[in-house]
Simulated scan of single mutants.
Amino acid sequence: MNIVLRLSIPLALALGAWGVGGALHAGEHEGRDHELARQALEQGQVLPLRQVLDKVEREYQGQVLKIEFEREDGRYIYEIRLLQRDGRMAKLEVDAVDGRVLKIKRKGD
């Protein structure tokens, strides 16, 4: 089962970690997706978004443009699009449980 949660960056940053009443992707399942993400955080199954963003921004030197929360093959994933200082776009898949970067794709590589 894949679950995708899309957050607007200003709202995600303002809420810190799956706050109340988030702006999600358009679609009929958005309330359920948001609830699953919130529950995963409350149950300690995933790291807070702010903690993951701090690490990514520090280690990959860039500005976060887009965030998605997914569950792929039983694993929670933060998918983060980052505009790096050299102007290249990077897409990182980060394990939401421990913050490890699992995959990086860069435009131009």
Rank of each mutant, 00 (worst) to 15 (best):
N2A: 13
N2V: 15
L7H: 00
L7F: 02
L13C: 07
L13P: 00
A14P: 08
L15R: 04
A17T: 09
W18S: 01
G19Q: 06
A23Q: 12
L24P: 04
H25Y: 07
H25R: 12
A26H: 12
A26Q: 08
G27Y: 06
G31M: 07
D33L: 13
E35Q: 14
E35D: 09
R38T: 06
R38W: 09
A40E: 03
V46F: 05
L47Q: 03
P48S: 14
L49F: 01
R50E: 12
V52D: 02
V52Y: 02
L53Q: 02
V56W: 01
R58P: 01
G62I: 02
L65H: 09
F69Y: 15
F69E: 01
E70V: 02
R71H: 05
R71W: 03
E72A: 10
R75A: 06
Y76P: 04
Y78T: 04
E79F: 01
I80D: 00
R81A: 04
L82T: 01
L83C: 02
D86P: 11
G87T: 04
G87Q: 10
M89D: 05
M89S: 07
M89R: 12
A90T: 04
L92Q: 03
A96K: 01
V101K: 08
K103Q: 15
I104Q: 10
K105L: 12
